[in-house]
């Protein structure tokens, strides 16, 4: 039996190493040295964020991007840059009650039409536009030249389906896209 232990244990760790080579899409924490200077400089100029700033690289099948995550004025920011360091968009965690009334009404109307029961899990507000327009918004709160979207994770229940969804809504709360969220397995926590 001890021999069995000596064989199985190294095999388990070997498996860890082998499978860690494979990846379809993932987000990895990186040091600031790995981030394009252009992204670092833009973030420094606009936000001057020194504390609790974390950088991540997000690798997809055909896309690489960098993300800076930090908390500013009690709000959780996620600033995404393209591989070359150009700004892509900014996402801020939102609170349902603080969304514009029209947005809430339209999202609610959509959800009530699609589901018999629904519950908001998480909201992120996406801001995109030119780097200058984003800077104007941060400095002067000018939203005119920005494209605003709402990424909403919600639980939706129909007659035969009870699932988690991610919906992308436009600035008025009209649906643009919806996809099912597949959670990673949790059997290790429950059995």
């Amino acid at each position: 039996m001890i021999k069995f232990f000596y064989v199985i244990l190294p095999l388990c760790f070997f498996s860890l190493l082998v499978f860690s080579q494979e990846k379809i899409e993932k987000e990895i924490k990186v040091s600031i040295n790995s981030v394009p200077d252009k992204a670092i400089n833009w973030l420094d100029e606009v936000f001057n964020q020194k504390k609790k700033l974390k950088w991540f690289i997000e690798k997809g099948e055909d896309k690489v991007s960098y993300e800076a995550k930090f908390i500013r004025k009690r709000e959780r920011y996620s600033v995404e840059f393209k591989e070359d360091g150009n700004l892509e968009d900014i996402e801020i965690y939102g609170n349902w009650r603080k969304l514009p009334l029209m947005v809430r009404n339209n999202i609610s109307d959509y959800s009530e039409a699609q589901f018999s029961n629904f519950r908001i899990v998480k909201i992120q507000i996406q801001y995109s536009g030119t780097e200058e327009a984003i800077k104007n918004w941060i400095d002067n709160d000018e939203l005119d030249q920005l494209v605003i979207k709402y990424e909403v994770e919600f639980y939706g229940e129909k007659a035969n389906t009870k699932k988690l969804w991610e919906g992308l809504f436009d600035k008025d709360g009209h649906i643009l896209m919806r996809r099912e969220i597949i959670l990673t397995p949790s059997n290790n926590l429950f059995f």
Binding site: S20, Q21, K26, E27, I28, K69, N188, L189
Partner: peptide, 21 residues
């Protein structure tokens, strides 16, 4: 039980995590 990703904002395939229970 708590399952915490340690390599990114969320637990993605190919990543390590911690479990405390």
């Amino acid at each position: 039980s708590f399952e915490l990703p340690i390599e990114g904002g969320s637990l993605d395939p190919g990543e390590f995590y911690l479990v405390f229970s």
